[in-house]
Design a protein around this nucleic acid. Structure first.
Lengths: 159, 159
DNA sequence: TATGAAACGAATACCAA
DNA sequence: TTGGTATTCGTTTCATA
């Protein structure tokens, strides 16, 4: 994978602000040709730096209940548990974490009933979960995707 | 806000799969005109149903450390704490939750040093945080944005 | 730079209340 | 008839070689 240079980061920052901005427009703003913007974006897409997606407001499509469930898995079962969890559509995010609860997921549901059913049926069916702690989201204060650093990027970054 | 009908959901599902799909193409697939797709999408954007964004891979832009921090705030201070947290760029997500830890955030950092600095400096400066529990992400298993229900949508949804 | 494709604005046609 | 949608078409803008 190529390293990202300043121009790449500038492009990402522009797209972070407006994902549908035209190549030509960005090129003019950054003092390069449209073709340069296009090839940079295509390369970054190939390299998996970012992807174009839609972010849907869960509340507005009927997913009124959001939860974070912290669970502890039996030793050696984490991978398997994560794999099972990944199959469930309600589950949006799964991560392995340090600490007492080694697996944390975020999931969306239509209703409290659906959440209860998820815990009592789907979760209980998965082998290897020792315990689970459900936190229901009461209010969302922030959910941003503009986290790419904008400063201190004079030099290249990447792996 | 208008309610979403079946066509709206079909459009959302297509965009969930490929956010850059052409209007014409979607129209042909769904048996409606390009103009219809366009106006539906514009209305949904106006109504805040979804937005076009880029989702950047944190690891590939140098954000190697991801954490979920669960904290408890002093009674009556939650809103104020959330507001302060929202100003910090590292913080991607903030939600109020049921349970012992009433505020849960997700944040991205370049390094462990940055995370430590965040906790010891940024967090400690915020009035109203009683305690904070830091969980560091060791591995990410899933991070999906295709959570819009695909079934059981024969009737309309919305508020 | 040229060529085709896609998106857009606006006028028109359609349908249901 | 009226308000809301869908369609159509001419034009502009954009993507691509």
């Amino acid at each position: 994978m190529r390293k990202l240079d300043l121009l790449d980061f500038q492009i990402v920052q522009m797209l972070q602000f407006d994902a549908r901005r035209a190549y030509t427009d960005m090129g003019q703003n950054l003092g390069v040709s449209e073709g340069t913007i296009r090839s940079r974006i295509n390369r970054m897409l190939e390299d998996g730096i970012f992807q174009f997606i839609i972010h849907t407001d869960p509340l507005k499509v009927g997913l009124h209940v959001q939860a974070i469930i912290s669970m502890s898995t039996k030793l050696g079962q984490q991978e398997k548990v994560a794999e099972q969890l990944g199959k469930l559509r309600a589950v949006r995010f799964i991560g392995a974490f340090s600490g007492r609860n080694d697996l944390i997921i975020q999931a969306y549901f239509r209703s409290n009933e659906d959440l209860v059913a998820f815990v009592n049926e789907d979760l209980s069916r998965i082998e290897g979960i020792a315990s689970a702690e459900v936190s229901i989201e009461l209010k969302q204060y922030k959910d941003s995707f503009s986290y790419v650093p904008t400063e201190g990027l004079q030099d290249t970054v990447g792996s």
